[in-house]
Amino acid sequence: MKTARRGWYYRLSFPKKTALWGFIFLLPWLLGFLLLFLVPMVQTFQFSFNNLEIIPTGGIKLTPVGLENYRHALLVDPNFNPALVNTLIEVFLYTPLIIIFSLLCAILLNGKFRGRAVARAIFFIPIIMATGLMMQRVTNLSGQMQGAAESSNVYGAGFIAELLFNLGIGKQLVQYLLDMVNRIFEIVSLSGIQILIFLSALQAISPSLYEVAKIEGATAYETFWKVTVVMVSPMILTCTIYTMSDLFARSDIMTLVYNLAFRQSRFGLSTAMSSIYLLLSVLSIGLMALLIRKVVFYYD
């Protein structure tokens, strides 16, 4: 009698209540996800087969053109293909470096030592700096300086470069070394969130595993490979996915697509390029993920 008066909510079973609240909690995010992620994704593909015009009075006009946009992007546009190849090379070159570097940093920062707070603060600076305008300034600066090939003072390494140059090492090699130094900063600036993810994974490893390893007489080297790496391997997968999609999002293609759409109003061509790019990036990320998935260990 009493329960009947108290309404339907009180008659729900516990799992059903949990599910109900789960969905209530998820609702705002889900709404945003559908509206601002899923719908635009689908529309990108839809627009790419059309000629899109924005009518001044509001609204849009679509005229189907079939594969014309794709043909133009791949065969006519002079900038698209080289940018695409460059981006792919860059992504596959940077990703392993970023993953290794950020795992290393996370392990270093996870240790207990004096001044850890300061060290962590310094390592967080790149995340702060990696914003659009700031990054532009820094890359511009290093770009300018790099332009001054022989005596350039990038990272205060000029004197080393000069020394190497004087020792009779070829100019190209010196240039390559300077290039690598430049890249180190780029890699560092891109690995902030990865360091974070790895740190959280490292802290989630149960200390009892290390205790067991110690009691069994494992060396630090063995412990690293057989406990640490194995336990963070799911996060290696996640980080790889995130790193690659981040790199894809930062490439020159984005500026190309953006300029085509909002400067030249060629929306159809722009969305066609985006679709090709999106497909390519998802394909390469998926391939990488499948490869890594084979060695990932899930601990339950």
Partner: peptide, 21 residues
């Protein structure tokens, strides 16, 4: 959620603008 990390949301500039408008 994990899968959506794979997609570069930045490529959807055009539809995003239209939805916003």
């Amino acid at each position: 959620v994990t899968l959506s990390l794979m997609f570069t949301a930045a490529v959807t500039a055009v539809p995003n603008y239209i939805i916003m408008s």
